[in-house]
């Protein structure tokens, strides 16, 4: 039996007294694309951020490729990992943010080179060549030396994808990657993601793009109020939702 790439077991998370995640169970196998949809405040972004320990979980367990994330088990209890160990785990998990979060003081190529240079200590020349290859792949061959402020939103998000890929992750997390984009720029980012999925990258995508979820997703997860209400093949969930909350949500967005 293959190890799941992501395995969430009864994940709980509260911010103060507000319980945002109330027991999430999710398994994503290698090569799968899981899309997470749901109304705002449903906890979908928080769940995504728990996968690479940007948020610490309060109860349950999160495993990536069989390894417990953010904690280690000793004597039947969980102990939070040291910062350097969390950093090591995050190297294999790429993340793309809604608001790109490119480093504004670095050019596109420098953004992509940054983590290989500082974390992996790659030589400058090799890192630069790989950065250029990655930027070619996302269709930005003419933008190596442009600063983020000189790029459109769609171009910035593609640089952000290249930057995440530079660490050769086993898993890619996308947090509403097209929500901050002008409508005509959404397509170019989805194209890159579609290509990535086609190459067999395991992806967890929080999104509002139902078309993308239907076409590219292997699993569609509908979340509401910190719980997974419904999950299954995108065709089934979108075409024939079983739960009335899913029906209500989809009737508003489709």
């Amino acid at each position: 039996m293959t190890t799941p790439m992501v395995e969430a077991v009864q994940v709980h998370k509260s911010f103060g007294r507000v319980e945002v995640l109330r027991g999430i169970d999710l398994t994503v196998m290698p090569g799968e694309v899981a899309c997470v949809i749901g109304p705002s405040g449903s906890g979908k972004s928080t769940f995504l951020r728990c996968i690479n320990h940007l948020e610490r979980i309060d109860a349950g367990a999160m495993r990536v490729d069989g390894e417990l994330i953010g904690y280690r088990e000793a004597g039947g209890r969980l102990h939070e990992l040291r910062e350097s160990e969390v950093a090591r785990q995050r190297r294999d998990i790429g993340m793309v943010f809604q608001r790109f979060n490119l480093f504004p003081h670095k050019t596109a190529a420098e953004n992509v080179m940054e983590a290989p240079r500082t974390v992996r200590r790659e030589p400058r020349r090799a890192a630069r060549e790989r950065a250029m290859a990655l930027l070619d792949r996302v269709g930005l061959s003419d933008k190596y030396d442009s600063y983020p402020a000189q790029l459109s939103g769609g171009q910035q998000q593609r640089v952000a994808i290249a930057r995440a890929l530079a660490m050769q992750p086993r898993l890619m997390l996308f947090d509403e990657p097209t929500s901050a984009l002008d409508p005509e720029l959404v397509g170019e980012v989805l194209d890159v993601m579609r290509g990535l999925a086609g190459e067999g990258m395991t992806m967890v995508v929080v999104t509002h793009e139902m078309g993308f979820a239907r076409e590219v997703g292997d699993t569609l997860v509908f979340m509401d109020e910190g719980r997974i209400v419904e999950a299954g093949q995108p065709r089934d969930v979108l075409g024939n939702p079983q739960h009335e909350r899913t029906q209500a949500f989809l009737s508003k967005v489709l």
Partner: peptide, 13 residues
């Protein structure tokens, strides 16, 4: 978001 992006790439504090 800058700190988060760097952290997500595996950079230390």
């Amino acid at each position: 978001g800058q700190t988060e992006a760097a952290g997500a790439l595996g950079m230390s504090r």
